[in-house]
Design a protein around this nucleic acid. Structure first.
Lengths: 200, 200
DNA sequence: CCTACCGATCGGTAGG
DNA sequence: CCTACCGATCGGTAGG
């Protein structure tokens, strides 16, 4: 009973250490001995808690995928909001997920390519579904003339790539806070999507 | 004499094969035997042409960095154009560089982290200088009231992250051509930067 | 969680 | 460009 709780905690410590290392050096360049070293145990001892190195990557990726999914789902269902308000909330939520756990977010965004074929295909589907949410949101706003008639798929990609890019340069110790980034990116992309007066 | 030309060609073949593999699996997960295999020679034979595996990565990264730099420099110096026209041209040029050689562009954008400390620092400086070009262009447009008073550094990053993201999903065999992407992205970001009528 | 160990593979060299 | 080979390190197992 207590054993389970301790094991869960240890497992989380392993995934946190691995996330940081995978972010710093990449999955392939990180050895199981590197991960174990961060916890001050031997490389072989890691296998008391995990089945394989890829198993650790898979756990991190799935946990991160779930965080993105949950954040987006709760917003998309709020049909009382305008499309602009929902897009703004999506941008804010995405940035919050990325910046609140940089390690696992980076692993989810970059290192999933290192997974075996079946798992990699599964992640691709999850990412497609998430991107679809952004695209449908843009299309909904276009249906009400709230958004300009841009290409919804391409615009969704541009927004998402810009948001994911944050994981590459954001520094928690810096002056630029997630709320400020969310505000600026929200303004930028909502403005980009707002029809010009002259078009009416 | 002829020897030199053959060697240059062989060297280019090695870098092309390596670019494709680094893009597919990442630098760390690619062995020198993998690269040699694509050229139907033995792993050890590669060392008749290159000094080390990192040497190949360095060459690819530097060649790609030069292509981005040259494309941007020629545009920035055209002071007869409006800021919007120059930004549009920068977006188009960047997308052209990315899509015309996906392998080396991806390696430049993602795999430079695998370089040794000194070289990695050098690439970071090059990337900063390039990003600076975008930022100054936005600031120039703001000075003439052509662009809205957004945060220039953050906006430059958003644009650049969106442009670099293209390397991750662009397919040469797809229906979406670089010119079309450049047009759409140009419209999107110029629109995002254009002051609203009501603000005047 | 440890020590001891496994076969496989790594980047790279020697000598032709 | 080849064969033969090097020491180091890899992910992972056995047995405690």
């Amino acid at each position: 009973m207590v054993e389970t709780r301790t094991d869960t905690r240890r497992r989380q410590q392993i995934e946190d250490a691995a996330s940081a290392l995978f972010r710093e050096r990449g999955y392939a360049a990180t050895s199981v001995r590197d991960i174990a070293g961060r916890l001050n145990i031997q490389g072989a001892s890691l296998y008391a808690h995990v089945a394989s190195k890829e198993d650790v990557l898979w756990s991190i990726v799935q946990r991160s995928a779930a965080r993105f999914r949950e954040a987006a789902d709760s917003i998309i269902q709020q049909s009382d909001l305008t499309s602009a308000a929902r897009l703004r909330a999506m941008i804010r939520a995405h940035i919050e997920v990325v910046t609140s756990d940089l390690g696992s977010a980076t692993v989810f965004l970059d290192e999933w390519r290192c997974l075996s074929d079946g798992r990699r295909a599964h992640v691709m589907e999850q990412r497609d579904a998430y991107e679809h949410g952004f695209r449908r949101l843009i299309e909904a706003g276009q249906a009400t003339k709230e958004f300009a008639p841009v290409d919804p798929a391409l615009t969704a990609r541009a927004i998402l790539d810009a948001l994911n890019g944050i994981a590459g340069w954001y520094r928690p110790s810096g002056e630029l806070k997630p709320d400020e980034i969310a505000h600026q990116y929200g303004q930028l992309f909502i403005h980009a999507l707002t029809p010009q007066e002259t078009q009416r």
